[in-house]
């Protein structure tokens, strides 16, 4: 068990190193003269001297390996450089923009959880009933639904037509509702389907027949006997869902004019703000690698079969 955990942790560490190399490459692989670009973005007269000064400042003339380690040292000290566009510190800007993204990820996950679990169980409770049929149709449709289209429709229905909810900006809990639904609805449909299928599969096992013959009701069997079977699937899906929801923040934050990290990343890509791009990629990569690691470990601990296999 401990060896497996250690093995996973080392793999994750290697992945983080790969992520840092890729992030570093964003400036190193830039086509054309980076120094000239930076000088241009700073404004003012761009002369050879200015470009040379910028190259000196960013250590662009050093060998790549040296630059990488220098950059890595700065990052480890919490210095992510400064934005080319605004000149502000990237780390400070990210900290400032953290709140909306956290709200979106947590809120979206909550929507996913509530929707997935309630619909999934309702479907399994009354198989082939009306709810089950609706879920099935809804799941196929929902997986194919573009997030930004869903968001646009939510804005149109609740913002424009009904004028019930705010659709612009990060202003209090009321303005959180629509973005969180836009982020959580698609994975929620997926989760409900997985729970439904997992429960159905478990309900056809022999021990369920035994429980039935003992005279237990469907609800008891569902929760006591079938439920533990879907825990690993559920945890893996939910872990993947965090990645999915975070990815959605890239699209949903700009639509609702939230100043989150997702919107920051998109802005950086639009304006070729290389230090911001680099830092965002690095931070998101590390986040995903750690989330994956955690999910793997939790699933391993939750799944009796895996636990036993590793011990043997």
């Amino acid at each position: 068990m401990l060896r497996t955990i250690l093995h996973r942790a080392v793999s994750a560490a290697i992945l983080i190193v790969i992520a840092s190399v890729f992030s570093f490459m964003i400036i190193a692989a830039f086509p054309g003269n980076v120094a000239a670009l930076i000088a241009e973005m700073r404004g003012g007269f761009v002369s050879h001297e200015v470009v040379a000064a910028v190259a000196e400042e960013y250590r662009l003339n050093d060998p790549l390996v040296l630059r990488y380690f220098h950059w890595l040292g700065e990052v480890l000290q919490g210095n992510l450089g400064s934005s080319l566009r605004t000149g502000e510190s990237v780390a400070a800007a990210m900290a400032q923009r953290l709140e909306p993204t956290i709200v979106l990820v947590l809120g979206g996950s909550l929507v996913t959880l509530v929707m997935g679990v309630s619909l999934g169980f309702a479907g399994a409770m009354w198989p082939n009933g009306v709810i089950d049929q609706i879920i099935r149709a809804f799941a196929v449709f929902n997986v194919s639904l573009p997030k930004f289209f869903l968001a646009a429709m939510l804005i149109y229905i609740f913002g424009v037509q009904l004028q019930m909810l705010p659709t612009f900006g990060f202003r209090g809990p009321l303005s959180w509702i629509l973005p969180c639904i836009a982020v959580g609805a698609v994975p929620g449909a997926l989760l409900s389907r997985l729970i439904r299928v997992g429960l159905e599969e478990a309900m056809s096992k022999p021990y369920v027949i035994t429980a039935k013959s003992k005279g237990f009701g469907r609800r008891r069997i569902l929760f006591r006997d079938a439920l533990p079977n879907i825990v690993p699937v559920f945890l893996t899906t939910f872990g993947m869902n965090i990645a999915f929801v975070t990815q959605s923040s890239l699209i949903i934050e700009p639509i609702f004019s939230w100043n989150g990290i997702g919107a920051y990343f998109v802005e950086a890509a639009r304006f070729r703000d290389l230090p911001v791009l680099q830092s965002c990629l690095l931070m998101f990569s590390i986040l995903f690698i750690l989330v994956n690691l955690m999910v793997d470990l939790i699933v391993m601990m939750a799944d009796p079969l895996q636990r036993r296999a590793k011990r043997a």
Binding site: I26, F30, V266, A269, R272, D273, L274, L277
Partner: peptide
Amino acid sequence: LAFVGVFG
């Protein structure tokens, strides 16, 4: 996104 950000 990172790729497009670098290459335009």
